[in-house]
């Protein structure tokens, strides 16, 4: 344990991960829509910080630009324009909450047990990977070229889906 925290990176990781989790919990458990959105921003920022820790500054910047800069701002605009600031009743009974919470806690405990039980045996090897933009580009268009192309098709399909879901049909009303 002490070994683990003696490395500053590990200490930072725990702190940032904890903050990210708190923010994520706020998104799930909060009541006011505006608070949810702000918590979401915190969660995004936390993930960006984790990327920095992993020595991937480009991904960190991309995370901030896209998720905080674009998606979150879009959500905030949407909230302001539609005026959806009313408090939403959660409508989940206490009993259900308790059951699900128990399940989640047990699952988390099992996972931690599994990871911690094996942590010592996993060799920690420096990745030695080039995290430069060039390398990233070559990985994207090389090894994961197919995934990249498929993802672009996925975005296209998502776009169509978004239109279908949100557009009001003329003859529908």
């Amino acid at each position: 344990m002490i070994d683990f925290f003696s490395q500053p990176t590990n200490l930072w990781f725990v702190v940032i991960a904890f903050l990210t989790l708190i923010a994520s919990l706020g998104v799930v458990a909060g009541e006011k829509v505006m608070h949810l959105a702000l918590n979401l921003g915190g969660s995004f920022a936390g993930v960006a910080a984790l990327f920095v820790l992993l020595q991937s500054p480009f991904l960190a910047i991309a995370q901030v630009l896209i998720y905080v800069g674009a998606i979150l701002v879009m959500i905030l605009f949407g909230l302001m324009l539609t005026g959806a600031h009313a408090t939403e009743p959660t409508g989940v009974e206490t009993g259900k909450k308790v059951t699900v919470a128990t399940a989640v806690i047990v699952l988390t405990a099992l996972t931690i047990w599994g990871v911690y039980g094996s942590a010592g045996r996993w060799p920690v090897v420096p990745s030695g990977l080039d995290t430069s933009l060039t390398a990233l580009g070559q990985a994207l268009y090389g090894h994961w070229g197919v995934a990249f192309e498929a993802a672009s098709t996925l975005l296209l399909a998502a776009l169509v889906g978004a239109i279908v879901v949100s557009r009001r049909e003329d003859d529908e009303a």
Binding site: E93, G95, K96, K97, V98, T99
Partner: peptide, 16 residues
């Protein structure tokens, strides 16, 4: 649904 609730023993769940 009911089982999930009753495990957590929520008295108010039945009416809802």
């Amino acid at each position: 649904d009911t089982a999930v609730e009753s495990v957590g023993a929520a008295p108010g769940a039945i009416g809802e």
